[in-house]
Design a protein around this nucleic acid. Sequence first.
DNA 1: CGCGGGTTTGATGATGCTCAAGCCCGGTGG
DNA 2: CCACCGGGCTTGAGCATCATCAAACCCGCG
Lengths: 193, 193
Amino acid sequence: MFEVFFTHVKEKVLLLKEEETIIKKYFIPKILRKKQYLLQDGDICKYLSFVENGLLRSYTVDDKGNEHMIQFAWEGWWIADTYSFLSGEKATYNIDAIEDSELLMITPAHFEEMVIMVPKMERYFRILFQNNIISKEKRLISSNSFTAEEKYVNLVTFHPQIIQRISQHLIASYLGITPETLSRIRKNIAGKK
Amino acid sequence: MFEVFFTHVKEKVLLLKEEETIIKKYFIPKILRKKQYLLQDGDICKYLSFVENGLLRSYTVDDKGNEHMIQFAWEGWWIADTYSFLSGEKATYNIDAIEDSELLMITPAHFEEMVIMVPKMERYFRILFQNNIISKEKRLISSNSFTAEEKYVNLVTFHPQIIQRISQHLIASYLGITPETLSRIRKNIAGKK
DNA sequence: CGCGGGTTTGATGATGCTCAAGCCCGGTGG
DNA sequence: CCACCGGGCTTGAGCATCATCAAACCCGCG
């Protein structure tokens, strides 16, 4: 169950066997079936979850019922409503499974305890968050500066896995465009080749 | 010179006098005059900078010469091309001073050394990056889901300091809209009251 | 076979961009 | 002290992009 987890952590920090043992104790394994919720907005986000395998998404829903994708998370990614998880306030995000998934979950209290007990995990998360900021900045520039077509081409170029694995209407929402527009863009691009 | 710095760090982690002494040694003070560059894209970002006072901005410039604001940083904020700083690759951001500013700068090597010598700083940056992620996610949702007017109202509501201190064409770029559109939005809002 | 979710296609309209001109105001030099 | 300059803000007209609404289509699944 912890195979993917330790592989990923060890890409960033070296862990001793004893440290692995300590870390394991803080996590709760969980199976989530396709379409099941991990979190609904209004609830408190009680877990930060590592995806051992499967695929999840976090998103908000606006007044008109439109979904706005925050993030996709598959093998090796973390997912939560970070704000709710850290502050204990109500979540504004929903999280559910796009595919059957296996998760490793940790509570805020255990998270804080773990990073103190194993300082290498503090380091791991600092590095993880750093990288997350870099990718969010890229997405933000893309969102603010590019046309719909440029955004899509950008995504295909730098994150082809997303296109392969996730249905179009979810990708459209991730890019902040409508499914119709995405469909037309794809047609247009196909025509160019 | 370190007043604002230690005030801000101590909001997140408690520091001993000895730790403060160690930390101070890693930083280089710098004065930057209005309009001077701290970083130009194509160069390597050699410093992560803390703003003791003043105001800076980071931004990209596209093929057509349009600027796209990444971030503003004033008293108590950090600024850098994070990717270039951490990877040693060429920067894609420009950073310059909007107002005369006093900075505390640290190199990547010293940064890594400091967080190992003073684990509380590792913690400080983990928390800092966490919060940064949360705010970038909010900005992303706003950018992907809202109209230009909604984005602006959102900014006025949650970051009134930005409106007070920064000129309109820079705010427009931060929101991913043109100065003309922002001007019309402001007129429109004023009319509503 | 028929249902339902996802995708496609079309027509229409709104939002926001582009280009161009004018204005306001603070700073500089005569 | 005034004239001028320039940057930033405003205003207008026309246009491109993208959203909306609606209908048809496709395909996997019960």
